[in-house]
Amino acid sequence: MTELTASADRRRLFALLSPAYLWLTLAVFLPLSAMLFFSFLTDLPQDNPDWSATFDNYARFLTNPTYAILMWKSVKLGLMVTLGCVLIGYPCALVLARTIKGRARETLFLLVILPFWSNSLVRIFSWAIVLRGNGMLEHALNWLLPFELRLELMFTTHAVVIGLIHSYLPYVILTSYLALQAIDDDLVDAARSMGASKLTILRRILLPLSLPGLLAGAVLVFVPVVGSFMEPRILGGRMGTYYGTLIEDQFVSVYNWPLGAALSFTLLAVVLLILACASPILGKART
């Protein structure tokens, strides 16, 4: 009897979940497996009838050091941007969640998520206008300062980092904010009643309890930044060649899809490897 209901339950569960699985199959699994398939080909079947299977595309990553160098450059960029987002975003979330109350909090929250509402291209070009030589930033600084100042920010790594931090900062603020906001006010009051200073409370209570949120935000920033190509290309100029732009070139300019796909999957593997290596640390921080 129980077995019967169990199997009936299972069937109903399957029926209820099938739309979600169907959607995942169509939207994620099929395109991804097509790409995986392409990455093992010499040519796209629709372009060249003489296509054959090969490991060459992956071998090129190992034989040509340029790819590994660019990968390392992208990982470094990811770490830098993530660090920047954490250093700016966590204090913002802290102030937003623990000190500001009522209407002001809603308004500030809106300002935080505003970057999400604007087109990313518009956002990047706005930064270009601000950062470029003789641009808005230099004008403003020279108007304020008594001496002439040349920042030369445009087409540097700094410009790329600034643009990326601006784009991905909301993730860290949002996840940290949610974690911080869930902390019971009484915990802070209890710590204060025992004589703890603000810094002690941050270090021993707020930070440990909100760390899962902060780490989730950091991962959400790190993964897409390693593969980013738009910000490096527009704000980095000559300096803006990264692993992400390399992949984009394979798809858009060189039209070598198999190599682009192979490079993408290599990136995916490297990112997963990094997260897997970091997970013991992340897990430890959680307890």
């Binding site: 009484d186 209890a190 021993r204 209570i205 309890l209 307890t287």
Partner: peptide
């Protein structure tokens, strides 16, 4: 020394 309604023990 203070004791709170919901104990306010530090869960971490």
């Amino acid at each position: 020394g203070m004791m709170f309604q919901n104990y306010a023990l530090f869960p971490n």
